[in-house]
Design a protein around this nucleic acid. Structure first.
Lengths: 141, 141
DNA sequence: TGAAATTGGAACGAATCAGTCCAATTTAAG
DNA sequence: CTTAAATTGGACTGATTCGTTCCAATTTCA
């Protein structure tokens, strides 16, 4: 019921990368310095984000990372699924993972897709643009 | 992002216990036989459910378990929180768990309570009565 | 052509979770 | 009143997954 730390870090990293959208490429170590996360951890996060086609990487000297899509077209659900795979609260919801053994007798099973969709909808409603902008709450502190 | 197996088993166990609401007490081994779950696992689940005041236990010969409240007053959120503790997707949402270290710089943090409430609301909308009734989907199969 | 900078993947350690077992308590019967 | 059986409650062990770190392959600029 808790998000993995990697997924949490991925959201923070993507929010930091979105602020460099117009400025071209950003290195992973620079993102680590801005977010305050450990360097190697950011490396692992950007690897998965690149594999999920959320970031575009350019190797070599002067290379770096940049968003593969506009920030408005990336949602929280995309980032979470990039790290943790498909959103599925239980095993029986996860498409073809029949490892429960008592699915036909399970009275609860028909209700899980409803809860699952409610969760995914809540995540898909928040685009990256809302996370990238610095909230007014911080300037007051 | 996935529910723990114990929480999943707890929901199934509570649904089975709700069907014995009028019939008095039910033993844990009997619930295991009805649900098809391993006996020791059900024992561990009912222990936590009893500690959370969702089940009432009567020890001794002829004893057993029964719902502490009416089935309509128990929701999915109650059962999940009984096993996994408070529902919190990230550490910074969990009341007083300041282990992140970059909370004041985190632009994402103000948005997590919104997602968290959406998830909890989806779980709290499903009472145990809807899970206990045998769904028509099963008779058709 | 050489060297520096960066990403990508692989390996190690730790923590939480799932599962199992045994002991303490209590009621019913003899 | 004593004995015995049945049940819950808590503690232990093993395993899977997650988090972290390090090293090698690739590419561009000077």
């Amino acid at each position: 019921m808790r998000l993995s730390n990697l997924a949490d870090y991925a959201v923070v990293t993507m929010a930091a990368a979105a602020q460099h959208c117009g400025g071209g490429r950003v290195s992973a170590s620079e993102l680590a310095a801005e977010t305050g996360l450990p360097g190697p951890t950011v490396q692992k996060v950007v690897s998965k984000l690149t594999a999920a086609s959320l970031l575009r990487s350019v190797r070599g000297a002067g290379g770096g990372l940049q968003l593969a899509r506009p920030a408005a077209a990336i949602t929280l659900a995309d980032i979470v699924e990039a790290i943790e795979g498909p959103i599925a609260l239980t095993a029986c919801v996860d498409s073809n993972a029949h490892e429960c053994g008592l699915e036909q007798n399970c009275a609860v099973r028909p209700h899980w897709p409803i809860v699952n969709q409610a969760l995914r909808g809540a995540l898909a409603d928040i685009p990256l643009t809302r996370l990238a902008q610095t909230t007014p709450h911080q300037e007051l502190v």
